[in-house]
């Protein structure tokens, strides 16, 4: 809060990230936010793909050239995991909203399940891709 606001005193704050012991719960929450931001930046790439596709073969080749570069491949793999992770964490949030798995043991359990599911889903996506012939 800006200290210049009249009538507002400096009030005690809840513990910041820096002084908080790392936990699975907070870690997953932070990563859910980071992957969400990452995916928001991935969405325009999806649009660029559509634009390149709608233009001509040369433009599409340029897009493929970027996508197949080392950075492009790392980004695509990163986005596929971020997508899987954010999806699993989103399902966990929706279950919480329904009032399920809210005690601390269940929060940890679903946390591990979501983490494992995101890895399985990512590997699944890439295996399915390798199996498909086009």
């Amino acid at each position: 809060m800006p200290s210049s606001t009249p009538g507002k005193k400096a009030r005690p704050l809840s513990p910041h990230l820096q002084v908080y012991r790392p936990q699975l719960t907070s870690g997953l929450s932070i990563f859910n936010r980071i992957t969400g931001i990452g995916l928001a930046f991935g969405l325009p790439v999806f649009v660029i793909w559509l634009l390149a596709l709608s233009k001509d073969a040369a433009t599409y080749d340029q897009f493929l050239h970027c996508a197949h570069s080392t950075i492009g491949t790392i980004l695509l793999m990163g986005w596929s995991w971020a997508f899987a992770f954010h999806l699993c964490m989103g399902v966990r949030h929706l279950l919480w909203d329904m009032g399920l798995f809210l005690d601390i043991k269940d929060v940890y359990k679903t946390g591990y399940v979501a983490l494992a599911a995101s890895v399985v889903l990512t590997i699944g996506i890439w295996i399915k891709m390798l199996l498909v012939q086009i």
């Binding site: 999806f46 793909w49 596709l53 073969a57 599409y60 897009f63 493929l64 996508a67 197949h68 695509l76 596929s80 997508f83 999806l87 996506i125 399915k128 891709m129 498909v132 086009i134």
Partner: peptide
């Protein structure tokens, strides 16, 4: 999400403009 994203990854990785 799954359908368009799989399409994107499939065609972005393999190329196949016609497909």
């Amino acid at each position: 999400i799954l359908y368009p994203i799989m399409g994107f990854f499939l065609y972005a990785v393999y190329g196949g403009r016609e497909g």
